[in-house]
């Protein structure tokens, strides 16, 4: 028996909106630790890892580890029917072939339940080793989204370079080139407006903008994004999910042939 009650149901809507364009079908894994997902895009170039810790739920009952295979676009359709302030409860029996989403309005005057068919998904679960990164950039998530969107009108790839000067996002295309430099800046009114660059070594990596733009669908989840770079690893683009977890996107770089 699985029963997860999330008071901030709007968070789940935002999580689905940030996943559904990248991944079609995925297994949600429920354990005592929390509600999690790991999935790759169909080209196996990007990977997403979601964790919503059990402590973040108002009520979290998971009698035994359960894997729920869901079509993410169908799940997003169902969650779209919930109000942004609704309380969302996810329910499933141990041997269930469906999952129930229950939506309660904040003042309890409307209660809806939606039942969605589950699917068998044969997914690979990858081991992601803990890594030391050469550079970690924290910046406003809306700024990062704007940069990815702007650069993708000019080129297909972005070179992200971190030096003492700051973090530089560069692209080139048929019409010309573009470079945007963001400097370390903590003299801001609000902490979420800060850009914090921690650099052990300079690093420069090339990525497909199409994927970066897809990751920025998570922007409504968090004011800040963390971009972790190492020359021999995929980049990690992380958004916190309130105080209860995170969504991490991993993207393999492009390398010179």
């Amino acid at each position: 028996m699985l029963e997860l009650r999330l008071v901030q149901g709007g968070l789940l809507k935002k999580v689905l909106d940030s996943l559904k364009d990248l991944v079609n079908d995925a297994n949600f894994d429920c354990s005592a630790t929390g509600f999690s997902l790991q999935a790759m895009d169909s080209s196996h170039v990007a990977l997403v890892a979601l964790l919503l810790r059990s402590e973040g739920f108002e009520h979290y009952r998971c009698d035994r580890n359960l894997s729920l295979g869901m079509n993410l676009s169908n799940m997003a359709k169902m969650l779209k029917c919930a109000g942004n302030d609704d309380i969302v409860t996810i329910k499933a029996d141990d041997a269930a072939d469906s999952v129930t989403f229950m939506f309660e309005s904040p003042n309890q005057d409307k209660i809806a339940d939606f039942d969605m068919k589950l699917m068998d998904i044969d997914s690979e679960h990858l081991g992601i080793p803990e890594a030391e990164f050469q550079a970690i950039v924290r910046m406003p998530s809306a700024e990062f989204a704007r940069i990815c969107k702007d650069l993708s009108t000019i080129g297909d790839t972005v070179v992200i370079s971190v030096t003492k000067e700051g973090v530089k996002f560069s692209t080139r295309g048929d019409i010309g080139t573009a470079n945007i430099v963001c400097r370390h800046n903590t003299s801001v009114d609000k902490p979420e407006e800060a850009t914090i660059i921690e650099m052990e070594e300079t690093v420069s990596l090339t990525f497909a903008l199409r994927y970066m733009n897809s990751f920025t669908k998570a922007t409504p989840l968090a004011n800040q994004v963390t971009i972790s770079l190492s020359s021999d690893l995929p980049v990690v683009v992380e958004y916190k999910v309130a105080e209860m977890g995170h969504i991490r996107f991993y993207l393999a770089p492009k390398i010179e042939e």
């Binding site: 990858l126 995929p234 393999a252 492009k254």
Partner: peptide, 14 residues
Amino acid sequence: PCLQRRILDYFNEN
């Protein structure tokens, strides 16, 4: 010309 690496080149299946 750039070659797109895959996630599987970096992380192994559990």
